[in-house]
Design a protein around this nucleic acid. Structure first.
Length: 244
DNA sequence: AATCGTGCCAACCGCCGTACC
DNA sequence: TGGTACGGCGGTTGGCACGAT
């Protein structure tokens, strides 16, 4: 059994949005803010699914959207971010103010893919198409594969984990080797939880760590901590990555 | 002028993670 | 603790615009 539909499909409009629907949605959100998308259509007098409203707002109606052509700088940034993050369009969009994940995804599939292919670069791996033995892949997956192959252990002091490529074996991490995208700073900022952090919702579960986890050691048999290597995974928010 | 092919992009679909009860 | 609802995400599709023939 699948989940029940998010709305009553028999009484909802589909397809392109009309000007009137746009106006209603904008007026409602301006008055009440973004809230519960499920109840929004009814409250706003729209015969639309909540998801559809959310998508329309995020991808088209939001006032901070930057419409128009992508600049050359944006192109290059997207390519670099894609080489590091893969098809994580929402993460990539988070680094391009005013652009949406859908817009970037469409732009990638229609323009950048072709652009890379014309340069002889595989848009999936970011490696030269004819260079099978090339060692220049830069991605999380490649880094993970490299670690797995060599049986390396993930180390907390690893400062540039996000940018490590296959050409940098795990033993070289943190030893000052140049990175493939030196102008991109994608450091993962790992820090202790801040009690005043407004973005963090209160955690119901007991936040204390067992001795092993607090030291970043492998979990003991008795460990009940939900933390990864002693870190609250909620702190690993890619949207907070800083750019140089 | 009509038809066809292609590119583009807004919107939909289905899945996943998480919060809540 | 399990079930459900919800928001969010990535992949895919449908329809429109436009150029070529």
């Amino acid at each position: 059994m699948g989940r029940s539909p998010c709305c009553e499909k028999a009484h909802t409009n589909k397809g392109a949005w009309t000007k009137e629907e746009d106006d209603r949605l904008v007026a409602y959100i301006k008055a009440h803010g973004e809230g519960c998308w499920r109840s929004l259509p009814k409250a706003a007098g729209l015969l639309r699914c909540g998801k559809s409203c959310r998508l329309r707002w995020i991808n088209y109606l939001r006032p901070d959207l930057k419409r128009g052509n992508f600049t050359e700088e944006e192109d290059e940034l997207i390519i670099k971010l894609h080489s590091l993050l893969g098809n994580k369009w929402s993460l990539i969009a988070g680094r391009l103010p005013g652009r949406t994940d859908n817009e970037i995804k469409n732009y990638w599939n229609t323009h950048i893919r072709r652009k890379l292919l014309s340069r002889g670069i595989d848009p999936v791996t970011h490696r030269p198409i004819n260079e099978h033995a090339s060692n220049i892949t830069i991605s999380f997956e490649a880094a993970a594969a490299a670690r797995e192959e060599k049986g390396a252990v993930f180390r907390l002091e690893e400062p540039k984990a996000a940018a490590i490529g296959r050409d940098q074996n795990p033993g070289d991490w943190g030893q000052g080797k140049p990175l493939k995208c030196p102008d991109l700073n994608l450091d993962l900022c790992i820090s202790p939880p801040c009690p005043e952090e407004p973005m963090m919702k209160p955690v119901k579960r007991e936040a204390g760590l067992c001795f092993s986890c607090s030291l970043g050691l492998p979990k003991s048999a008795d460990c009940k901590c939900s933390n990864f290597l002693g870190l609250r995974t909620a702190m690993l928010d890619f949207r907070s990555l800083e750019m140089k």
